[in-house]
């Protein structure tokens, strides 16, 4: 029963990481940019809950979504003047955004941590035989699956989705065909914002202590998952995010008292995986990779 419990918890955390990972992959697809500041959009959303404790729940959730999306779009606007800069310059700029925002959060709220008090009842467990499943676990799996399927449908069934996929494969050709660069890039940040906001809600319920590195601690493993899965395709990047969340929970279950080493073990595994399959475990490009 322990194993089943771990699998369910693993799927739940995997779903949250997959949401963040899909956003990272979408942005990477259209800009060839790893957005390191993605985690800070999550932190900003979490702090919005801290300041809206007096408001009705629905309004608080709306404010949180608006906050995460606004931060995501602000990062996009902030990067516009650098559109033609080298990838390294862009990457370092998102680092700068990330640490700047973390410092601002630290100045305003300190490192103590605040409890946003959102939907705490979802942490109560539902007993099925020996299994104890928290409602938030079910909600994470449900919300995660729903949004991932919705985004996949958008990408595969709509003209704008087709344009985004085209831009991700070959940006220059897409523009030659009339695909508006600014529009698809902004759309990628908008969708990443929506997905991150959903992840924020689930995270805040589960880990009700918001600190300046709240989102960072989620975005980094999600990003690692994207790289492990293969960041050249949306499916592999998203699945990679899921895997890292899933594996973390499963390993945590086995390590038990050795849990302090969990992060080290996960990242050691990542190194091994990347040495063996440098383009990602799920990527189809491994067969043709050039070795030096």
């Amino acid at each position: 029963m322990d194993a089943l419990q771990a699998i369910i918890d693993g799927v739940a955390l995997g779903s949250i990481y997959a949401l963040v990972a899909m956003g990272i992959t979408l942005i990477f697809g259209v800009m060839r940019l790893i957005n390191f500041a993605q985690g800070e959009t999550i932190t900003a959303g979490a702090y919005s809950f801290v300041v809206t404790t007096e408001l009705p729940l629905v309004l608080r959730i709306v404010v949180m979504f608006a906050t995460v999306i606004a931060f995501s779009l602000a990062i996009e606007l902030g990067l516009r003047p650098l559109r033609n800069a080298t990838p390294a310059a862009l990457l370092v700029t998102t680092f700068a955004f990330s640490f700047l925002l973390q410092s601002v959060f630290l100045l305003v709220w300190s490192s103590q941590g605040d409890n946003p008090l959102v939907l705490s009842k979802l942490n109560e467990a539902l007993s099925v035989g020996d299994l104890k499943i928290r409602w938030v676990t079910l909600a994470s799996i449900g919300v995660g699956s729903l949004l991932l399927v919705a985004t996949a449908l958008f990408l595969n069934r709509t003209s704008l989705g087709l344009q985004m996929r085209a831009a991700a494969h070959d940006f220059r050709t897409a523009r030659i065909l009339g695909v508006r660069a600014n529009r698809v890039i902004m759309l990628a940040f908008l969708i990443a914002g929506i997905l991150s906001a959903a992840a924020t809600l689930m995270l805040v319920v589960q880990r009700p202590l918001v600190t300046p590195t709240f989102g960072f601690s989620v975005a980094i493993p999600a990003l690692v998952g994207v790289v492990v899965g293969g960041m050249d395709r949306i499916v592999t990047g998203t699945m990679g995010g899921f895997l890292i969340g899933f594996v973390t929970v499963i390993l945590g279950n086995y390590l038990e008292s050795g849990r302090v080493f969990l992060t080290s073990v996960v990242f050691a595994l990542v190194i091994v995986v990347l040495v063996l399959r440098p383009n990602g475990v799920l990527s189809r490009q491994n067969a043709t990779v050039e070795r030096v």
Binding site: S159, R165, T173, I176, L177
Partner: peptide, 29 residues
């Protein structure tokens, strides 16, 4: 492109992982 000029680039630059129809639909953009 939207003003009425279309380029067929050297090396074709079709989208190999997309269907023929999806490639044509991109032309409609």
């Amino acid at each position: 492109a939207r003003s009425g000029v279309a380029l067929v680039p050297e090396g074709r630059h079709i989208f190999p992982h997309f269907t023929v129809q999806e490639n044509l639909d991109l032309g409609l953009v």
